[in-house]
Design a protein around this nucleic acid. Sequence first.
DNA 1: AATGAATGAGTCTTCATTCAT
DNA 2: TATGAATGAAGACTCATTCAT
Lengths: 233, 233, 233, 233
Amino acid sequence: MGVYERQKKEKEILEAAIRLFASKGYQSTKMDEVAKSAKMSKGLIYFYYKNKEDLYMAVTKKAFEELKDVFKDTQKTKGKSGIDLIKMLIENFIRFTENNRMYQEAILNFMGLMAQYNDAEKRTHIDPLILESPNFTHLLEIHHDPAKIGIQIISHGVRDGSMRPDLQPEITFYTIWTMMIGYERLRGPIEYENKEIKISTENWQNGFIKLINDLLVGTIQAQRPKAVQGSLF
Amino acid sequence: MGVYERQKKEKEILEAAIRLFASKGYQSTKMDEVAKSAKMSKGLIYFYYKNKEDLYMAVTKKAFEELKDVFKDTQKTKGKSGIDLIKMLIENFIRFTENNRMYQEAILNFMGLMAQYNDAEKRTHIDPLILESPNFTHLLEIHHDPAKIGIQIISHGVRDGSMRPDLQPEITFYTIWTMMIGYERLRGPIEYENKEIKISTENWQNGFIKLINDLLVGTIQAQRPKAVQGSLF
Amino acid sequence: MGVYERQKKEKEILEAAIRLFASKGYQSTKMDEVAKSAKMSKGLIYFYYKNKEDLYMAVTKKAFEELKDVFKDTQKTKGKSGIDLIKMLIENFIRFTENNRMYQEAILNFMGLMAQYNDAEKRTHIDPLILESPNFTHLLEIHHDPAKIGIQIISHGVRDGSMRPDLQPEITFYTIWTMMIGYERLRGPIEYENKEIKISTENWQNGFIKLINDLLVGTIQAQRPKAVQGSLF
Amino acid sequence: MGVYERQKKEKEILEAAIRLFASKGYQSTKMDEVAKSAKMSKGLIYFYYKNKEDLYMAVTKKAFEELKDVFKDTQKTKGKSGIDLIKMLIENFIRFTENNRMYQEAILNFMGLMAQYNDAEKRTHIDPLILESPNFTHLLEIHHDPAKIGIQIISHGVRDGSMRPDLQPEITFYTIWTMMIGYERLRGPIEYENKEIKISTENWQNGFIKLINDLLVGTIQAQRPKAVQGSLF
DNA sequence: AATGAATGAGTCTTCATTCAT
DNA sequence: TATGAATGAAGACTCATTCAT
């Protein structure tokens, strides 16, 4: 059996896993179901993936790879200023999370894992199956790739004059990244019917992007008492 | 047994649960351990909480209540402009998540749940134990309270002139909220050692708050070619 | 539930395990069967014993305890010389193994385990579940008890003049111990029908004990050429 | 493929199996590992051996064959009296078990199997794969060969006057055989550090052989009260 | 002859939950 | 109220064996 067929099988498993994790969550999907959904025997799943955690890490890796593609594709767009690229990026990212709600879940989970991983004491509480997962190890290497591209886009925006010249690319991008990450999680609360203040999804998205635009491009400063202005900085 | 004693017991269970969920996560903490840590029998835990999910929802409720306190306490601070209150809020929130990493986890989880809950089709995939949990029902009612206060603070800032007059309070606060939520998750990736670009935690936090300040207060607009400026809006 | 009831349950499980291990062997008996045979749920088995290995070690411990009783009871017999006690011991031991073929299996297995345990390099190949078993740890402490009594009996026999005065108790007992251990294993080959030389079980046992008697009491030395005699010692 | 190549392959598998069974035990070695260690595919293992049990029986057969060689080689030694041959045999056997701890394990296991096999009722509990194994069938035919030679050596010893004239060769050899078998198992307990009475391995082996010598050659009888002497025989 | 991907029955173990006391 | 022994369904994972190529 050639490498090609093997990769195809692996991909089929991965797709089945994503399908199930997306609709029922990690805990609720059983390896039996993954096998059935991938039209294979359970044993074969374990032939390609060490265990359930490893399979989840493979899914997470795919999430980061596709995320990187979103960043890369945006960056490669011709004839756009930096600010426009960032706005495109945000729109593409929102579409990405809408199409693959599961991916966002996996990405958030991995980031939480990273926080534990960085803390020597908490690292010991991480499931050993995760730490031993080859896919987790690989993730450690690549999880920063999207951010690297994001930082480049900001730099580009500063250089081409479409963004404020005083922006520090790293901190600025991470701030934007913060917003992108938080955006998906806010869908639930924002769409919830029984609350007093309602915003249409459309207004919310447009307003959100507008504010990012303001942040990066700059606005006319508010008129306010000198005493208060800039009190912290 | 009086109401007081009952509430005390309930609180002891809750605190034990928080302690354990914080250090090992929901899945890894066993009801046995909660009982042991709360110095009670397992049976008693089930007297006070319907089941494990209900206990988790109680923890989540506590998280939202304490979060609301953070918002409320900030709002009540005397003699501060709106912008300063928001900056205080962010600092207080960061401290809150640092002290109770578990709470942030619970909040994120609940928000994810809400997204499913709002989608009629996906709602059926939510564990029935959650839907039946009295604490979950209560959460639906109160989860919006912190945001309500946040929106008030922004309104206040616009009114007192410490923020740009053109800000829409709801959308603006949700955008800030987005950042606060994302901020905690980014700790992991930002603190990770083996990546190329490193930022000190301190610089990152200061830069982050500075940008929020810029966003809300406004800045001098960047000089850039008319053709590009505002191309999307 | 009192300590007494708990111990009774534990005993019931142990007895069921012995019954099954005896008739089908360790590998072939399933925890499900043990539970069924002990008329309990599977979970309860795991409440009393850490895992299957631990249960097996508990059985082994019981084997050594009962073995010690055999030694002790023999030793306590009144009005017997050392040589007669040893012969009684052997007969009692043979009866013991006949009644509990499983026990001999467990004892042999434990002795094999000990050999691995003493070799630092091989110890790593022992199943961790065994090393962590509380019953295994206890076994390490008690497995030598029967031998200690055996050595006392030999000493006694030398002192009372019923055995050769030049016997070293330790080495002599271990040699006898060697024979007792080997005796059970030889049943199979000796009883096998299709071999040329046949000995009746009775003759074999009597002859075996007679030789041990000769060894311990002494016999008239064989007449043989000086050159050969004692060539090695 | 010629017969020669076929036998070579078979031998390679056998050697790999012995290597692995020796270091990890039967249960813990996987057919996958055997294949890898023998540098063949798993399928080929099954071409040469019906199943794992059959492979183990093949190993056991080899153990008995090599054991027979030990007996045969000893017997063929020129210019030695019977007693010296037996002492040589024991030393050679000890060396044999030291070099191939696995063989002793296999031999003990087979003997246990024989005991079950001889008991019509217990025979049904033997794994059918064993009963169907061609190697097991062959073992039934040959397992007695070493004992046959042992008996001849004793007969020889009696005849040449180096052993007591009243020894019955069969029973005597089986008794010696009993000791040889038990000797290996006692290593573990004897080498165990934490027990009170310690014997050096060297003293133990020498003492052990000395006693066998005494048994076979005879010694001056112990002085003891007539009443007690020979009370059982 | 030879390969190694594929199978799936089989098992240990876990743990939320219950309930007799 | 309070206990903790008892339950048993559920699920991850293993691995001897097969068979298409």
